[in-house]
């Protein structure tokens, strides 16, 4: 409760999401209370920049804010699209009239162009907003990242009755990266595993996470394995594609986002099936220092 209030009190400091709401003149499409409420929730997300903590309220707020944000963007973009549809249909009506009014059609057409540009501007502002949160690359211990990510999905693991197996040796080699983005990668992989298990009634409900130094490649690998149905061979190549999903109501952005974050960090991400069943996702990132990595083999092999 106090945590929620804390985020709201930080709102004035983080007002960049307002730019998304700015319409054209009085043509802004989000209004009054509704606009403020939705903005506030997203601001709560932005303001906290997803510092996880172990507060379930915060975790809930974060997931809700993402949903609210999607609704807000959909609403915002639907306005100019609706105007384009109506102007287009009105143009067609003019053109089928005997007293075709070329001037009208020209006006309607330029308005359609303006609305299409506006829709594109909205998309661009959302992209800019994401870019504003420029990644801050600092030395990060992936074990910390994994543990923080686990706090965010702990409730989902518990409510699905999933057993967690964690293989981490500390301290593990550091990588250079944005802590929040890397957390996002691990959270997405974990959520994916949890959902894979939730989809089927399997007796074994387990997620294994390991952080392992790879001295031979000077990399650190985070592996997330689940006891779900695994990835059908025919889909192996698609899992990282945007908007690919097998989930009802899924957006298909989670794994695509993971891949783009990992690639931006100079790393690799791979999806496979474990020989004993279930899907295995592994993320490898370059270790910050070769010496650190070479000096240590963090954990016994996690069975990758």
């Amino acid at each position: 409760m106090s945590k929620t209030r804390l985020h709201e009190s930080e709102l004035p400091m983080r007002s960049r999401e307002r730019s998304v709401h700015k319409g054209h003149g009085n043509g802004s499409s989000f209004t009054g209370r509704e606009r403020k409420d939705k903005g506030a929730e997203f601001a709560a997300l932005a303001a906290s920049r997803m510092q996880p903590g172990d507060d379930p309220v915060h975790s809930l707020l974060y997931h809700r804010a993402l949903g609210e944000l999607a609704t807000l963007i959909a609403h915002e973009i639907r306005q100019p699209l609706s105007a384009i549809v109506t102007n287009g249909e009105t143009s067609l009506r003019w053109m089928s009239r005997d007293d075709l009014n070329a001037e009208k059609v020209r006006n309607l057409t330029s308005r359609m162009v303006a609305s299409a540009r506006r829709a594109n501007d909205i998309v661009q502002r959302i992209l800019d907003m994401a870019a504003d949160d420029a990644p801050r690359h600092i030395p990060v211990d992936l074990s910390d990242v994994v543990e923080e990510a686990l706090l965010l999905v702990r409730h989902d693991l518990e409510s699905e009755g999933i057993e967690l197996s964690l293989l981490i040796a500390r301290p593990s080699p550091e990588v250079l990266g944005d802590r929040i983005q890397l957390q996002q990668v691990v959270v997405n992989l974990l959520s994916n595993s949890i959902q894979a298990i939730a989809q089927v009634r399997c007796a074994k409900r387990q997620v294994s996470v390991s952080v392992e130094a790879q001295p031979e490649t000077s990399a650190v690998t985070v592996a997330v394995r689940d006891s779900g149905p695994g990835i059908p061979d025919s889909l192996r190549d698609c899992v990282f594609q945007s908007f690919f999903t097998t989930k009802a109501g899924g957006m298909g952005v989670g794994l695509a986002l993971c891949e783009s974050i990992v690639v931006a960090h100079g790393g690799t991400i791979a999806a496979s099936n474990h020989c004993e069943g279930g899907a295995l996702f592994s993320v490898s990132l370059p270790a910050l220092s070769d010496e650190v990595c070479a000096g240590r083999s963090a954990v016994p092999s996690a069975g990758a």
């Binding site: 043509g27 802004s28 100019p80 105007a83 009506r93 009239r97």
Partner: peptide, 24 residues
């Protein structure tokens, strides 16, 4: 309150040979 939509609706009303008055 959305200007583009308001004008679009007005134009649609006008092409029907009806009179339109719009408000934001």
């Amino acid at each position: 309150d959305d200007e583009a939509m308001r004008l679009a609706l007005s134009e649609l009303v006008e092409v029907l040979s009806l009179t339109c008055r719009d408000f934001d």
